[in-house]
Design a protein around this nucleic acid. Sequence first.
DNA 1: ATTCACATGATAATCATTCTCATGAAGATG
DNA 2: CATCTTCATGAGAATGATTATCATGTGAAT
Lengths: 135, 135
Amino acid sequence: MTEHTPRRTTRQRTTISEFLAHAGDFRTAQQIHEQLRAGGDGVGLATVYRTLQSMAESGEVDVVRTADGESAYRRCATSDHHHHLVCRGCGRTEEITAKAVEAWAATIAAQHHFTDVTHDVELYGLCATCGLERR
Amino acid sequence: MTEHTPRRTTRQRTTISEFLAHAGDFRTAQQIHEQLRAGGDGVGLATVYRTLQSMAESGEVDVVRTADGESAYRRCATSDHHHHLVCRGCGRTEEITAKAVEAWAATIAAQHHFTDVTHDVELYGLCATCGLERR
DNA sequence: ATTCACATGATAATCATTCTCATGAAGATG
DNA sequence: CATCTTCATGAGAATGATTATCATGTGAAT
Protein backbone atom coordinates (compact mmCIF):
# COMPACT_ATOMS: atom_id res chain seq x y z
CA MET A 1 0.00 0.00 0.00
CA THR A 2 2.86 2.36 0.76
CA GLU A 3 4.32 2.43 -2.68
CA HIS A 4 7.35 4.59 -3.23
CA THR A 5 8.37 6.35 -6.37
CA PRO A 6 11.32 4.37 -7.65
CA ARG A 7 14.67 6.11 -7.76
CA ARG A 8 16.71 3.84 -9.98
CA THR A 9 16.85 3.54 -13.72
CA THR A 10 16.64 -0.06 -14.78
CA ARG A 11 16.31 -1.89 -18.05
CA GLN A 12 12.76 -2.84 -17.12
CA ARG A 13 11.63 0.72 -16.43
CA THR A 14 13.13 1.90 -19.68
CA THR A 15 11.60 -0.94 -21.64
CA ILE A 16 8.10 -0.30 -20.35
CA SER A 17 8.38 3.42 -20.80
CA GLU A 18 9.49 3.06 -24.39
CA PHE A 19 6.86 0.49 -25.12
CA LEU A 20 4.18 2.92 -24.03
CA ALA A 21 5.81 5.70 -26.00
CA HIS A 22 5.39 3.69 -29.20
CA ALA A 23 1.98 2.27 -28.44
CA GLY A 24 -0.39 5.09 -29.16
CA ASP A 25 -3.34 4.05 -27.10
CA PHE A 26 -4.18 2.35 -23.83
CA ARG A 27 -2.71 -1.00 -22.88
CA THR A 28 -3.38 -3.15 -19.88
CA ALA A 29 -0.63 -4.51 -17.68
CA GLN A 30 -1.33 -7.98 -19.00
CA GLN A 31 -0.99 -6.85 -22.60
CA ILE A 32 2.26 -5.07 -21.93
CA HIS A 33 3.68 -8.08 -20.16
CA GLU A 34 2.72 -10.42 -22.97
CA GLN A 35 3.84 -8.22 -25.83
CA LEU A 36 7.19 -7.47 -24.23
CA ARG A 37 7.76 -11.13 -23.63
CA ALA A 38 6.89 -11.90 -27.24
CA GLY A 39 9.32 -9.23 -28.36
CA GLY A 40 12.17 -10.73 -26.40
CA ASP A 41 12.50 -7.94 -23.86
CA GLY A 42 10.65 -9.85 -21.19
CA VAL A 43 9.73 -8.13 -17.94
CA GLY A 44 8.20 -9.89 -14.96
CA LEU A 45 4.49 -9.41 -14.52
CA ALA A 46 4.88 -8.12 -11.00
CA THR A 47 7.39 -5.58 -12.21
CA VAL A 48 5.04 -4.42 -14.93
CA TYR A 49 2.37 -3.76 -12.33
CA ARG A 50 4.74 -2.02 -9.96
CA THR A 51 6.19 0.15 -12.68
CA LEU A 52 2.86 1.17 -14.13
CA GLN A 53 1.63 2.00 -10.68
CA SER A 54 4.51 4.29 -9.95
CA MET A 55 4.37 5.88 -13.38
CA ALA A 56 0.72 6.64 -12.76
CA GLU A 57 1.54 8.17 -9.40
CA SER A 58 4.15 10.43 -10.87
CA GLY A 59 1.76 11.46 -13.64
CA GLU A 60 3.86 9.97 -16.39
CA VAL A 61 0.94 7.84 -17.58
CA ASP A 62 -2.82 8.01 -17.51
CA VAL A 63 -5.03 5.31 -16.11
CA VAL A 64 -8.44 4.35 -17.38
CA ARG A 65 -10.73 1.57 -16.22
CA THR A 66 -12.05 -0.65 -18.95
CA ALA A 67 -15.64 -1.82 -18.94
CA ASP A 68 -14.72 -5.11 -17.30
CA GLY A 69 -12.73 -3.50 -14.52
CA GLU A 70 -9.23 -3.76 -15.87
CA SER A 71 -6.82 -0.87 -15.61
CA ALA A 72 -5.34 0.40 -18.85
CA TYR A 73 -2.35 2.70 -19.06
CA ARG A 74 -1.24 5.22 -21.61
CA ARG A 75 1.67 7.55 -21.83
CA CYS A 76 0.39 11.09 -21.62
CA ALA A 77 1.03 13.39 -24.51
CA THR A 78 0.80 16.22 -22.08
CA SER A 79 1.25 16.19 -18.35
CA ASP A 80 -1.47 18.77 -17.93
CA HIS A 81 -4.83 17.79 -16.62
CA HIS A 82 -6.96 16.37 -19.40
CA HIS A 83 -9.62 13.81 -20.26
CA HIS A 84 -10.14 11.08 -22.84
CA LEU A 85 -12.39 10.13 -25.66
CA VAL A 86 -12.00 6.39 -26.10
CA CYS A 87 -13.27 4.31 -28.99
CA ARG A 88 -15.18 1.25 -27.81
CA GLY A 89 -14.37 -0.48 -31.06
CA CYS A 90 -10.64 -0.16 -31.54
CA GLY A 91 -9.44 1.50 -28.37
CA ARG A 92 -8.14 4.57 -30.14
CA THR A 93 -7.96 7.48 -27.78
CA GLU A 94 -8.08 11.22 -28.16
CA GLU A 95 -6.89 13.47 -25.39
CA ILE A 96 -9.14 16.37 -24.78
CA THR A 97 -9.04 19.34 -22.52
CA ALA A 98 -12.03 21.33 -21.48
CA LYS A 99 -11.97 24.47 -19.50
CA ALA A 100 -15.73 24.30 -19.57
CA VAL A 101 -15.79 21.10 -17.56
CA GLU A 102 -13.22 22.31 -15.09
CA ALA A 103 -15.24 25.42 -14.43
CA TRP A 104 -18.44 23.45 -14.14
CA ALA A 105 -16.89 21.06 -11.61
CA ALA A 106 -15.66 23.93 -9.50
CA THR A 107 -19.08 25.56 -9.53
CA ILE A 108 -20.91 22.40 -8.54
CA ALA A 109 -18.42 21.78 -5.75
CA ALA A 110 -18.94 25.24 -4.35
CA GLN A 111 -22.72 24.94 -4.52
CA HIS A 112 -22.64 21.80 -2.43
CA HIS A 113 -19.98 23.09 -0.04
CA PHE A 114 -17.49 20.47 -1.11
CA THR A 115 -13.79 21.19 -1.04
CA ASP A 116 -10.70 19.58 -2.49
CA VAL A 117 -12.68 18.35 -5.46
CA THR A 118 -11.26 16.23 -8.25
CA HIS A 119 -13.10 14.62 -11.09
CA ASP A 120 -13.12 11.72 -13.49
CA VAL A 121 -14.43 12.48 -16.92
CA GLU A 122 -14.20 9.93 -19.70
CA LEU A 123 -16.10 9.76 -22.96
CA TYR A 124 -16.75 6.50 -24.78
CA GLY A 125 -18.01 6.10 -28.30
CA LEU A 126 -17.31 4.78 -31.75
CA CYS A 127 -14.74 6.50 -33.91
CA ALA A 128 -15.48 7.27 -37.52
CA THR A 129 -13.96 4.01 -38.76
CA CYS A 130 -15.59 1.71 -36.23
CA GLY A 131 -18.89 3.50 -36.52
CA LEU A 132 -19.12 2.54 -40.18
CA GLU A 133 -18.25 -1.11 -39.60
CA ARG A 134 -21.25 -1.49 -37.35
CA ARG A 135 -23.77 -1.37 -40.15
CA MET B 1 -22.55 -12.36 -21.03
CA THR B 2 -26.07 -12.37 -22.45
CA GLU B 3 -27.83 -11.33 -19.29
CA HIS B 4 -31.57 -10.95 -19.42
CA THR B 5 -33.71 -8.59 -17.50
CA PRO B 6 -35.48 -10.78 -14.99
CA ARG B 7 -39.23 -11.13 -15.25
CA ARG B 8 -40.17 -12.62 -11.91
CA THR B 9 -40.63 -11.02 -8.56
CA THR B 10 -38.82 -12.96 -5.90
CA ARG B 11 -38.08 -12.49 -2.23
CA GLN B 12 -34.44 -11.91 -3.10
CA ARG B 13 -35.10 -9.16 -5.60
CA THR B 14 -37.41 -7.41 -3.19
CA THR B 15 -34.97 -7.74 -0.33
CA ILE B 16 -32.10 -6.23 -2.24
CA SER B 17 -34.21 -3.46 -3.67
CA GLU B 18 -35.48 -2.48 -0.23
CA PHE B 19 -32.05 -2.68 1.27
CA LEU B 20 -30.79 -0.17 -1.26
CA ALA B 21 -33.80 2.02 -0.71
CA HIS B 22 -32.89 2.37 2.96
CA ALA B 23 -29.15 2.65 2.52
CA GLY B 24 -28.59 6.19 1.40
CA ASP B 25 -25.27 5.86 -0.30
CA PHE B 26 -23.28 3.43 -2.37
CA ARG B 27 -22.79 -0.18 -1.31
CA THR B 28 -20.77 -2.93 -2.90
CA ALA B 29 -22.18 -6.33 -3.74
CA GLN B 30 -20.04 -7.84 -0.98
CA GLN B 31 -21.38 -5.40 1.59
CA ILE B 32 -24.96 -6.02 0.59
CA HIS B 33 -24.48 -9.76 0.76
CA GLU B 34 -22.89 -9.60 4.19
CA GLN B 35 -25.30 -7.12 5.72
CA LEU B 36 -28.34 -9.00 4.46
CA ARG B 37 -26.97 -12.23 5.86
CA ALA B 38 -26.33 -10.56 9.21
CA GLY B 39 -29.89 -9.27 9.20
CA GLY B 40 -31.34 -12.73 8.68
CA ASP B 41 -32.63 -12.13 5.16
CA GLY B 42 -29.74 -13.90 3.53
CA VAL B 43 -29.35 -13.85 -0.23
CA GLY B 44 -26.80 -15.86 -2.13
CA LEU B 45 -23.77 -13.95 -3.31
CA ALA B 46 -24.26 -14.96 -6.92
CA THR B 47 -27.83 -13.73 -6.74
CA VAL B 48 -26.72 -10.41 -5.32
CA TYR B 49 -24.40 -9.93 -8.26
CA ARG B 50 -26.97 -11.01 -10.80
CA THR B 51 -29.65 -8.81 -9.33
CA LEU B 52 -27.46 -5.73 -9.08
CA GLN B 53 -26.34 -6.25 -12.64
CA SER B 54 -29.85 -6.37 -13.97
CA MET B 55 -30.95 -3.45 -11.82
CA ALA B 56 -28.08 -1.45 -13.26
CA GLU B 57 -29.08 -2.41 -16.79
CA SER B 58 -32.63 -1.32 -16.27
CA GLY B 59 -31.43 1.94 -14.76
CA GLU B 60 -32.90 1.23 -11.35
CA VAL B 61 -29.52 1.70 -9.71
CA ASP B 62 -26.34 3.63 -10.38
CA VAL B 63 -22.93 2.06 -10.57
CA VAL B 64 -19.69 3.65 -9.49
CA ARG B 65 -16.21 2.20 -9.44
CA THR B 66 -14.39 2.58 -6.17
CA ALA B 67 -10.73 3.50 -6.12
CA ASP B 68 -9.68 -0.12 -5.76
CA GLY B 69 -11.79 -1.29 -8.63
CA GLU B 70 -14.88 -2.55 -6.86
CA SER B 71 -18.32 -1.76 -8.18
CA ALA B 72 -20.65 0.06 -5.83
CA TYR B 73 -24.38 0.38 -6.36
CA ARG B 74 -26.92 2.92 -5.30
CA ARG B 75 -30.60 3.27 -5.81
CA CYS B 76 -31.21 6.29 -7.99
CA ALA B 77 -33.35 9.09 -6.69
CA THR B 78 -34.19 9.82 -10.28
CA SER B 79 -34.03 7.54 -13.25
CA ASP B 80 -32.87 10.35 -15.50
CA HIS B 81 -29.29 10.55 -16.58
CA HIS B 82 -27.21 12.22 -13.91
CA HIS B 83 -23.84 12.27 -12.22
CA HIS B 84 -22.50 12.12 -8.68
CA LEU B 85 -20.57 14.20 -6.23
CA VAL B 86 -19.12 11.77 -3.73
CA CYS B 87 -17.49 12.64 -0.42
CA ARG B 88 -14.14 10.94 0.02
CA GLY B 89 -14.51 11.21 3.76
CA CYS B 90 -17.93 9.80 4.60
CA GLY B 91 -19.20 8.51 1.26
CA ARG B 92 -22.16 10.83 1.22
CA THR B 93 -23.38 11.35 -2.30
CA GLU B 94 -25.19 14.12 -4.08
CA GLU B 95 -26.86 13.51 -7.38
CA ILE B 96 -26.28 16.24 -9.87
CA THR B 97 -27.50 16.91 -13.35
CA ALA B 98 -25.79 19.15 -15.82
CA LYS B 99 -27.05 20.07 -19.19
CA ALA B 100 -23.78 21.88 -19.66
CA VAL B 101 -21.81 18.66 -19.50
CA GLU B 102 -24.17 16.78 -21.77
CA ALA B 103 -23.90 19.48 -24.37
CA TRP B 104 -20.15 19.61 -24.04
CA ALA B 105 -19.86 15.84 -24.49
CA ALA B 106 -21.99 15.93 -27.61
CA THR B 107 -19.90 18.72 -29.07
CA ILE B 108 -16.60 16.99 -28.43
CA ALA B 109 -17.94 13.78 -29.92
CA ALA B 110 -18.99 15.55 -33.08
CA GLN B 111 -15.67 17.34 -33.42
CA HIS B 112 -13.81 14.04 -33.34
CA HIS B 113 -16.33 12.26 -35.56
CA PHE B 114 -17.31 9.86 -32.81
CA THR B 115 -20.80 8.44 -32.63
CA ASP B 116 -22.85 6.64 -30.03
CA VAL B 117 -21.04 8.49 -27.27
CA THR B 118 -21.64 7.95 -23.59
CA HIS B 119 -19.74 9.40 -20.68
CA ASP B 120 -18.68 8.84 -17.12
CA VAL B 121 -18.52 11.92 -14.99
CA GLU B 122 -17.92 11.67 -11.26
CA LEU B 123 -16.76 14.32 -8.85
CA TYR B 124 -14.92 13.50 -5.66
CA GLY B 125 -14.26 15.83 -2.78
CA LEU B 126 -14.78 16.52 0.88
CA CYS B 127 -18.20 17.55 2.09
CA ALA B 128 -18.58 20.49 4.46
CA THR B 129 -18.46 18.27 7.54
CA CYS B 130 -15.49 16.16 6.52
CA GLY B 131 -13.65 19.20 5.23
CA LEU B 132 -13.64 20.73 8.69
CA GLU B 133 -12.44 17.58 10.42
CA ARG B 134 -9.33 17.61 8.32
CA ARG B 135 -7.77 20.56 10.13
C1' DA C 1 36.07 -3.25 -5.99
C1' DT C 2 32.88 -3.39 -2.22
C1' DT C 3 28.75 -2.66 -0.27
C1' DC C 4 23.92 -2.15 0.49
C1' DA C 5 19.58 -0.50 -0.22
C1' DC C 6 16.47 -0.97 -3.65
C1' DA C 7 14.60 -3.62 -7.75
C1' DT C 8 13.36 -7.82 -9.93
C1' DG C 9 10.76 -12.03 -10.92
C1' DA C 10 8.86 -16.68 -10.21
C1' DT C 11 5.32 -18.09 -7.75
C1' DA C 12 1.83 -18.22 -4.25
C1' DA C 13 -1.90 -15.76 -2.22
C1' DT C 14 -5.94 -12.65 -2.47
C1' DC C 15 -10.23 -11.29 -3.75
C1' DA C 16 -14.01 -9.65 -6.55
C1' DT C 17 -16.70 -11.50 -9.97
C1' DT C 18 -18.60 -15.16 -12.95
C1' DC C 19 -19.84 -19.89 -14.00
C1' DT C 20 -22.03 -24.48 -13.13
C1' DC C 21 -25.74 -27.10 -12.31
C1' DA C 22 -28.85 -29.36 -9.20
C1' DT C 23 -32.80 -27.71 -6.68
C1' DG C 24 -36.60 -24.38 -5.66
C1' DA C 25 -40.32 -21.39 -6.67
C1' DA C 26 -43.28 -17.99 -9.83
C1' DG C 27 -46.91 -17.86 -12.54
C1' DA C 28 -49.66 -19.86 -16.28
C1' DT C 29 -52.83 -23.42 -17.46
C1' DG C 30 -56.46 -26.88 -17.19
C1' DC D 1 -56.22 -26.89 -6.58
C1' DA D 2 -52.81 -29.68 -9.01
C1' DT D 3 -49.52 -29.66 -12.48
C1' DC D 4 -46.16 -28.05 -15.42
C1' DT D 5 -42.83 -25.22 -17.66
C1' DT D 6 -39.52 -21.94 -17.16
C1' DC D 7 -36.83 -18.94 -14.93
C1' DA D 8 -34.40 -17.95 -10.44
C1' DT D 9 -31.60 -19.35 -6.72
C1' DG D 10 -27.44 -20.69 -4.19
C1' DA D 11 -23.42 -23.42 -2.79
C1' DG D 12 -19.29 -24.03 -4.33
C1' DA D 13 -15.89 -24.21 -8.08
C1' DA D 14 -13.55 -21.57 -11.56
C1' DT D 15 -11.64 -17.42 -13.45
C1' DG D 16 -8.65 -13.70 -13.84
C1' DA D 17 -6.59 -9.46 -12.49
C1' DT D 18 -3.87 -7.65 -8.98
C1' DT D 19 -0.85 -7.97 -4.85
C1' DA D 20 2.32 -10.13 -1.56
C1' DT D 21 6.45 -13.00 -0.63
C1' DC D 22 11.14 -13.54 -0.56
C1' DA D 23 15.39 -15.20 -2.45
C1' DT D 24 18.38 -13.27 -5.80
C1' DG D 25 20.21 -9.62 -8.83
C1' DT D 26 22.00 -5.04 -9.71
C1' DG D 27 22.31 0.35 -9.63
C1' DA D 28 25.17 3.63 -7.79
C1' DA D 29 27.57 5.63 -4.03
C1' DT D 30 31.93 5.15 -1.47
